[in-house]
Amino acid sequence: MPRPPAPSAPPPAHRRYGSPGPDARFGARLLITVAVTALVSVPFALALVLVESQWTPLLRLDRGTAGRLHAAALEHPGWVRVLDFLTHVVWDPVTMRLLVAALVVWLLVRRALRLALWAAVTATASGLLGLLVKALVARARPHLPDPVSQAPGFSFPSGHAMTATTSCAVLLLVLLPLVPRRWRPLPWALAAVSVVGVGYTRVALGVHWLSDVVAGWFLGLAVVTATTLAFEAWRVDVGRAPTTPVQGLEPEIRSEHPEPPVGTPERS
């Protein structure tokens, strides 16, 4: 006598009750990433439109700020040397990118592969996007009488300001979990001083308009927002708990091996 067919296994809960599966949840997180990034990009887009349309109040602000800072620079040659050292050595984009590159190598040694990839992608995307926007806008740099400094290429947005924003954000979000909680305001303050300071040096030396610097900050922030939210969606998708900027991107970096070997299930 033939055996009756074995009962089939019940469908997964998300199919029986209509709740979304893991792929749908991951897609929803990526959609949120795109929406938030678009929202954060609005200030940069507005700055771009105002620059391209040569909005008179913005041009007046740019020229007035450049003129005042240039006059102050001409009166204080020693201060110009300090600014030149800060902008071409301490906060130079090459210096910032080397710091991020060293961080990526350190993360690879610690087998924090996701975090290393995020840092590398963020720094690379920032550099390439900045160059692309510069070429598309092709804004001339300030032409001031008796210039105290020179810089090649186009002006909008400021590559120094954008690189400082993304690099400081990468360093903060990766290394913050290693800093004792009571000392965490210090790296935040150092990052803020670096980002604002490099913007000041570029305008004070007469190689950028104020709007170039502000646009660089905004565009750098948009890049970091996009890659960070994508990283967070990836992190949650593999079973890690959500984090906040105060915690850093991956608090598990404090352990000797922040990522388990391939094939080892991760805890939620």
Rank of each mutant, 00 (worst) to 15 (best):
V109A: 13
G239R: 06
Y17F: 15
L173W: 06
T201A: 08
S268L: 13
A241G: 02
F85C: 06
D92G: 01
T243K: 10
A101H: 05
L31Y: 00
A72T: 07
L69M: 14
F154K: 09
R254G: 13
R68H: 11
G206T: 10
P43D: 07
L178W: 11
V238C: 05
T244E: 00
L58R: 12
F26E: 03
L113F: 09
R29E: 11
W188V: 14
G239N: 08
A241I: 05
A72I: 08
G18T: 06
T227N: 01
A169L: 13
L31T: 13
V42T: 12
E232P: 06
A38Y: 04
H76V: 09
R182K: 12
H143V: 15
G18I: 04
L74E: 09
P5K: 06
F218G: 04
R139K: 10
V179D: 09
H14N: 10
S268P: 10
V148F: 09
L69P: 06
L128A: 13
P258C: 03
S19L: 11
F85W: 15
V105A: 15
T228L: 04
P145F: 01
H76P: 00
Y17A: 08
T95F: 03
V174Q: 04
T95L: 04
D84I: 01
L178I: 09
T122N: 12
A169Q: 11
T225E: 03
V42N: 02
W106H: 14
L83T: 10
A102N: 00
G239T: 09
P77Q: 05
W209N: 00
E252I: 00
P185Y: 04
L103W: 05
V36G: 08
W183G: 03
A226I: 00
P242G: 03
A241P: 07
W55I: 03
V90G: 07
V82W: 13
A138V: 05
Y200D: 02
Q150W: 12
P11A: 15
L144P: 10
V213T: 03
V51L: 05
A226Y: 08
V238S: 03
